[in-house]
Amino acid sequence: MGLLALFRRTPPSASVAKERLRIIVAQERSARGSPDYMPLLRRELLEVIRKYVNVDPAAVQINVEREDGHEVLEFSVALPDKAR
C-alpha cells in the first residue's frame, strides 16, 4: 500500500459482509425455535396463494411469535402492484 492507494477507492467490503451477516443470522435465529413443519407450511401456503395471485416467494413472511404462554402464527404476503 503506497501513495497510489490513497486515490484508489476500494469499497469497504467487510462492512457489507457484516451487514449481510447481521440480517441473515437474525433471520435464521428467529426461525430456530419454530416448529419443524414451518418450511412445508410456508411452501404449501405459497402454492395456494399463487393459484390466485402471482407473488414472489420472497414476498411471503411467516413467523411464530411467542407471547406469554401462547403462540401466534403470523403470515404476511406483499401483493404485487397489479394482481394477475
Binding site: T10, P12, S13, A14, A17, L21, V25
Partner: peptide, 17 residues
C-alpha cells in the same frame, strides 16, 4: 486486511455471534 476494510474484524464477528 482488517485495517483496509477488506476483512471482518474480531469485534464484528464477536458482535454478530
Amino acid at each position: 486486511r482488517v485495517s483496509t476494510g477488506e476483512m471482518l474484524s474480531v469485534a464484528d464477528v464477536k458482535e454478530i455471534l
